[in-house]
Lab assay of single mutants.
Amino acid sequence: MGFKLLSKLLVYLTASIMAIASPLAFSVDSSGEYPTVSEIPVGEVRLYQIADGVWSHIATQSFDGAVYPSNGLIVRDGDELLLIDTAWGAKNTAALLAEIEKQIGLPVTRAVSTHFHDDRVGGVDVLRAAGVATYASPSTRRLAEVEGNEIPTHSLEGLSSSGDAVRFGPVELFYPGAAHSTDNLIVYVPSASVLYGGCAIYELSRTSAGNVADADLAEWPTSIERIQQHYPEAQFVIPGHGLPGGLDLLKHTTNVVKAHTNRSVVE
């Protein structure tokens, strides 16, 4: 069995187990497998329904001669939608809004960016022009300005110390501490036991640490421990890039980060 097929099978099995364990909360999309990078042309966006009122959005972007996937989250909030992270750029984010209108038909009224990198804030200006209120932590807003990236308009308070959590509509926002970046936030959907790890969490097929220019490698494993301790009931975990899975993604990420750190020390 090929690795790609095995990865998709694991996603399907995880979703099936969740649907059985929580039949009222989960209505997993039966329309197909989780979209992969090879299936999404740059400039297009796919939506994948995880649970009743919960979707991931998947886009792709060219970077350094390669094409990478990027995940975000959409959560229903009454007759409105909360968006977590842009679709990595203005063109993708405009396509995301169009796809949401086509498939869901509810307005996106608020959006949260989970850290300051372009795959999370690139497209904020498109959201703002569409009347979406954009939010991020003060740290993310400051770092985005320093980096020359787009800056969300509103500040999220109460997320300055490791372990801080605040309720934001249908989700809980959690600051686990520094990891992929010093400002990275985690998003949890309690009604569906869905954990969105953003770039602080890796997919299972990833074996290298990737972009760690703004990471705190020493603190990252401790931050992941905080996530595990705060959300032990999480059933569906979405990484910032690639295929979702279960809580095993947290341990896998820790292993990859520690291996990278150990290699760096040896070198």
Rank of each mutant, 00 (worst) to 15 (best):
P152G: 04
T222E: 13
L106R: 12
V187W: 00
L243R: 12
D79L: 15
T86E: 01
G148P: 04
S264N: 15
G65M: 13
N92Y: 04
A95M: 14
G198K: 01
T222S: 11
Y68M: 06
G177P: 00
V171M: 05
Y202Q: 12
T86Y: 03
K91C: 07
V54H: 00
G65T: 06
R142D: 13
G53W: 11
P221E: 12
L13N: 15
L82Y: 11
S27E: 07
R142S: 12
P69H: 15
D52L: 11
A130Y: 06
D164G: 10
E233S: 13
G78E: 08
D248A: 08
I151R: 08
V237T: 05
A21N: 05
D79R: 12
K4M: 05
N211P: 07
R46M: 14
H252W: 05
Q49N: 09
R120P: 01
P190N: 07
P69F: 15
D164Y: 09
S160W: 14
L73D: 02
K251M: 07
Y188N: 04
I151M: 14
E150C: 04
S56K: 05
I151A: 14
S7Q: 11
E219N: 06
L97F: 05
D183V: 01
G240F: 03
D118M: 06
Q228V: 13
A51R: 09
R167L: 07
N71A: 08
V112A: 05
G198L: 02
I100T: 06
E233P: 03
E80R: 13
I224M: 12
K91S: 13
V189D: 03
D77E: 09
P244N: 04
R142H: 10
L97N: 00
Q61Y: 14
I186P: 00
L83V: 13
P152L: 03
V42A: 11
S22P: 13
R128F: 15
L106C: 06
R120I: 00
L156P: 04
N262W: 06
K91E: 14
A21S: 09
H230A: 14
G89D: 05
A200T: 11
S193L: 11
N255P: 04
F168Y: 06
P138I: 15
A98E: 12
A213K: 09
E233W: 12
G148F: 14
V11T: 06
L73I: 11
L6W: 07
S137P: 05
K258A: 12
S62I: 15
D164F: 06
A111R: 03
F236D: 14
D125T: 08
S264R: 13
P244V: 07
G242I: 03
H230E: 12
A136F: 03
A179D: 03
A51W: 09
I84P: 01
V166L: 11
I17Y: 08
P170F: 04
V265W: 09
I50W: 14
S155Y: 15
R263L: 07
L82E: 03
S16H: 05
K91P: 11
P170A: 07
Y196N: 01
A90C: 05
H230K: 15
Y175I: 02
S31D: 05
L96R: 01
D64Q: 13
T253R: 00
S181R: 01
G163N: 11
G169L: 03
P23W: 09
D29K: 10
T222P: 14
V67W: 11
